[in-house]
Amino acid sequence: MKNKSLVSISDYSKEEILHILELAAGFEANPNQPLMRDKVVASLFFEPSTRTRLSFDTAINRLGARVVGFTDASSSSTTKGETLKDTIKMVSNYADMIVMRHPLEGSARYASEQARVPIINAGDGANQHPTQTMLDLYSIQKTQGTLENLTIFMVGDLKYGRTVHSLLMALSLFNPTFYFVAPKEMSMPREYKIFLKEKGIRYFEQFEMGNLEKADILYMTRVQKERFSDPIEYERVKNAYVLKNAMLANTKDNLKVLHPLPRVNEIHPDVDANPKAYYFQQAENGVYTRMAIMSAIMGVK
């Protein structure tokens, strides 16, 4: 893993994923480990993000490293017309590692080919978001005691929701059963269904919230307004996939509700008090998993 970019979760083997999760548990037990005191991390956010950026910044600081970079493209030389290639070439001369979020899909893979230092993809458009996946896996493993043989429900925007795509690919290493709950126009893209078929993984598609008693994990996603070209279509779809506390009545005891956050209205606030709600703890896990990923890539752990 040392000096290897993390662009797509499929860059990591099952063993590497489990190793990261083990390191993350160590950081959760002891979050202040200044193992990267002599390192500079470039944090390049070509697109604004609060949660992911603060989580990375926290992880970098807890590891004792220093951070340089920008928080949106308007404060970078991109506005002067600099290409991504040139920005990456330049920054990789300065920093030991680059954390990058960019609106274009495939930008992180391209950056990893141009940079002399490892790249961590913090989201490339609707494509991949592997560190989110790692924290999701950590949350699942922590609450279920295992990643193997689980039944996972994915609900909401499965077409553009990159977190569900990355999570699907990672969980495919652990013999899952998937239920995809989405409106037709937001259904799981063909390439992921081909991928599951090739791997011989069971999946079911349904248009309505149902069969919840089968679930070990209920992974809710936000139906993002900005993904719709037609605002009427958004209004029609946004209320169809709302989780309410009453719906959890007959679900398994071990069920946990996950959500990458921020939520809008897809989880009713009456779910928050239910012990099955795990989305806030899930977000906290992001710091430990990002510490684990960065320290593994820098070879300090």
Partner: peptide
């Protein structure tokens, strides 16, 4: 090339078909 019969080309960058 993921499918040579129906032709499905997976982009090395954005991973779309």
């Amino acid at each position: 090339v993921e499918d040579k019969v129906d032709l499905a080309l997976k982009c090395h960058y954005c991973e779309k078909i």
